[in-house]
Amino acid sequence: MVISNIWYFLSGLTLLSALMVVLAKNPIHSVLYLVFTFFCISGHYVLLNAQFLMAVNIIVYAGAIMVLFLFVIMMFDLKKNQPESKSSLTKLAGSVVAGTLLVLLIALLRKNNLPAPSEVNFKSQTGMVETLGKILYTEYLLPFELISILFFVAMVGAVMLGKREAGERNF
């Protein structure tokens, strides 16, 4: 088994499941396909030798965020909340915009001719957690700390939103 074959297989699987997220009629199926897409992306991280990103991607996206998605969608009455079908004009406009974006992206990639990374300078340990930690805590310390402040603000905001005021209904 050659690595590039695994890559092709995984990429095909990723694209297929990502497509199914959009095409699936049932929102729950959409969410599950999205979870599967995240797994495929984690597989790509493994191929890039970035195990830490792989684990964090699964923990944060598949393990936490998508569970909450599933949670919210399960609370819906799916029979009552079916989104009405769009008119054919909207569908046409949507496909034109999406097609243009696709053409633009392909043109951009072809024009730029991204250089292949040289094998001499390639470091296999770049994606390891030790390297990542060293870079985060030295070179990118300020952005890292700023992000932690951002997280803190978001957390306080979430607690404020979820807090029951005095005299409000007790569910």
Binding site: I28, L32, V35, Q51, F52, M54, A55, V56, I58, I59, A62, G63, A64, V67, L70, F71, M74, M128, V129, E130
Partner: peptide
Amino acid sequence: NIGILWVFGIVSLGVYGILIGGW
């Protein structure tokens, strides 16, 4: 070299079986 994160990730996935079955 991320062993314990693997455990943590799988534990966080464990809820899917129950959630999907229940729904």
